[in-house]
Simulated assay, not measured.
Amino acid sequence: MTADAGRTGAEPLSSVCWCCGVNRDDAELVHLGNHPEVGICVSCARWVQRRARALEDRHSRGVAAHLRALVGSARAAVIARGWHERGRLGAFLRRLDRYLP
């Protein structure tokens, strides 16, 4: 066993998100179960969850899957047009996106 002599217990460990590369405290990252060395930030974890849900929805014919597909299409159109980068409209759309599936 070796200890890092330069660190004290009060300092938070800094890690990098494996998806986007942003530096975060280790406690602010989501770690994968069998691979604790892999950590992703909350926004990337949301993105991964949406991708996983989209894969599940390919085989589903329910109303909820259809609504999520419509929201995904609208999200793609907003990003393609760059509306999410426009002043107050962009701020509103980014805030709204946090609450959509």
Rank of each mutant, 00 (worst) to 15 (best):
A69H: 07
C17S: 00
R75F: 14
E37C: 01
D26K: 09
E28S: 13
N23A: 06
R68C: 04
D25R: 13
L100H: 05
R88W: 09
H59W: 07
R75H: 14
T2A: 02
L96I: 13
A77N: 13
A5H: 03
E28L: 10
V71D: 12
R7S: 04
H84K: 07
H31I: 08
R53T: 10
H66F: 10
R98N: 02
E11K: 03
R98T: 02
G90V: 11
T8P: 08
D4M: 05
L29Y: 00
A65C: 04
R53Q: 11
G21K: 02
D26W: 06
E11L: 02
L70M: 03
G39Q: 02
L96K: 13
A77G: 12
E56V: 11
A69E: 08
A45N: 00
N34Q: 14
R24Q: 04
V71K: 07
S43E: 09
G33A: 12
T2L: 00
E85M: 06
A91I: 04
A3F: 13
R7E: 00
A54H: 13
L70N: 04
D26C: 08
A5E: 01
L13P: 02
R81T: 06
A52D: 00
A5P: 01
E37M: 00
A27F: 09
A64K: 15
L13S: 08
L67Q: 14
R50I: 01
R95M: 04
W18G: 11
R51W: 08
L96A: 14
A77T: 13
L29E: 02
R51P: 00
F92G: 09
A52L: 11
R95T: 07
G9R: 08
S73L: 15
L32Q: 06
G62R: 14
A69C: 10
Y99W: 15
Y99H: 15
A64W: 15
R68W: 06
A52E: 10
A69D: 10
V16M: 09
V48E: 02
R68S: 11
H59E: 09
E28W: 05
A27V: 11
A76P: 00
A52P: 01
A52F: 06
H31Q: 13
H59D: 04
C44W: 06
R68D: 10
V71C: 12
C19H: 14
F92Q: 06
G21C: 02
V22L: 01
C41A: 07
A76E: 11
M1Y: 06
C41Q: 00
W47M: 13
F92H: 05
A74D: 06
R58T: 10
R75K: 12
A77P: 07
D97T: 15
W18C: 10
L55E: 03
S73A: 15
E28K: 04
P12W: 06
E11C: 01
G87M: 08
V42H: 08
A77R: 15
D25N: 15
P101Y: 11
T8I: 14
A77F: 12
R51T: 07
R95I: 06
R46E: 03
D25L: 15
R24K: 03
